[in-house]
Each structure stands twice: as C-alpha cells, then as structure tokens.
Computed example of a mutant assay.
Amino acid sequence: MSRNTRLVEASPDQVWSVLSDGWLYSSWVVGAARIRQVEPDWPAVGSRIHHSAGLWPLMIDDHSEVLEADPPRRLVLRARGWPAGEAQVTVLLHPQGAHTEVEILEDAVRGPGVLVPRPVRSVAIGLRNTETLRRLALIAQGRP
C-alpha cells in the first residue's frame, strides 16, 4: 500500500470542505480529467462522483464511490478507472495545531492493476499522490 502525507496550512474543516465538494475532485485528484456528475448526497456512504480520465478524445468514463465518511477526519473511496481497475483510497485528516496533516493510503484492489508487483505500483501511486496532495493543499489553503 502506498502512503503519502503532507502538512496543509488549513484546518481539517477547510480541507474537508474541498473533499466534500465533488465538483472539485478533478482539480486535486491526479488522473481525473473532468467531472460529469456529482450525486447530491456526496460524500455520504454509497454516493458517487462520475468522472472521466485520459486525454480527449480518448476519455474513459467511470466513477468513485464513498465507502466510509467521518467528517472531518476520514474519507474512504473506491476509485474506479477501468480498464486499469479499481483502487481503495483512504484520506485521513490529522489536526496539527491550526494546520492539518493529510495522509493518503492507496492500493489497487481489482483489475489488472493488482497484477503489477506491489513495490512497483506503490512507487507509481506514491508519485501520483505526492502531486494529488500538493493540489489538495493549494486549494484548501486558498479557500476562506
């Protein structure tokens, strides 16, 4: 499993406000190119964001679903990106004074991605999530 952390100069509530705005998902999640639909109860358990990945005109439509939500501390998603497969992504928010340490744990759980040796996929996921956390931090820090 890949694990990334970043200290964000924003409160857990400010970071959660980004996570809970499904329309911002493609702004901070590396690989999500656009959002097609956000179910009205996002991020309630079972709700989905319908997104696309790739470059136009070769876009793949899929979705991410909330498996667990404990605002403003924990969000667990099943992120789908077929034909690559599915990943489970856990985002944890740890208060650090006026700031938040954001931790992302992710691994492939279904599809061809699980065939990639764990050390190789952990490096690839880790590199992507370093940028994901950078984007999340910039958005959270820029919100009032």
Rank of each mutant, 00 (worst) to 15 (best):
M1S: 07
S2Q: 12
R3M: 14
R6C: 11
R6N: 12
L7Y: 01
E9I: 03
P12G: 00
D13E: 09
D13G: 03
Q14S: 09
W16P: 03
W16K: 03
V18K: 09
L19Q: 07
D21F: 03
G22A: 02
L24T: 07
S27I: 02
S27Q: 14
W28N: 06
V30A: 10
A32T: 07
A32H: 07
R36C: 06
V38T: 03
P40H: 02
D41T: 10
P43T: 01
A44Y: 02
G46S: 12
G46M: 12
G46T: 13
G46K: 13
S47N: 05
R48S: 12
H50S: 04
A53G: 15
G54M: 11
W56I: 13
W56K: 14
H63P: 02
S64Y: 04
V66T: 09
E68W: 01
D70M: 00
P71C: 01
P71N: 00
P72R: 00
R73L: 00
R74F: 00
L75H: 06
V76H: 04
L77P: 05
A79Y: 13
A79S: 15
R80M: 10
G81P: 14
P83Y: 13
P83D: 13
A84N: 12
G85L: 11
G85T: 10
A87C: 12
Q88W: 07
V89T: 14
V89C: 14
T90Q: 15
T90G: 04
L92C: 02
L93I: 00
L93K: 00
H94R: 05
P95T: 00
A98Q: 05
A98K: 06
H99L: 09
T100V: 01
V102Y: 08
I104Y: 14
L105T: 08
R110F: 08
P112Y: 03
G113E: 07
V114E: 08
V116R: 12
P117I: 04
P119R: 07
P119Y: 03
V120E: 04
S122G: 03
V123E: 06
V123C: 03
I125C: 09
I125Y: 13
I125D: 10
I125W: 13
G126W: 08
L127H: 04
T130Y: 06
E131I: 09
T132K: 12
T132A: 14
L133W: 13
A140L: 05
R143V: 05
P144F: 04
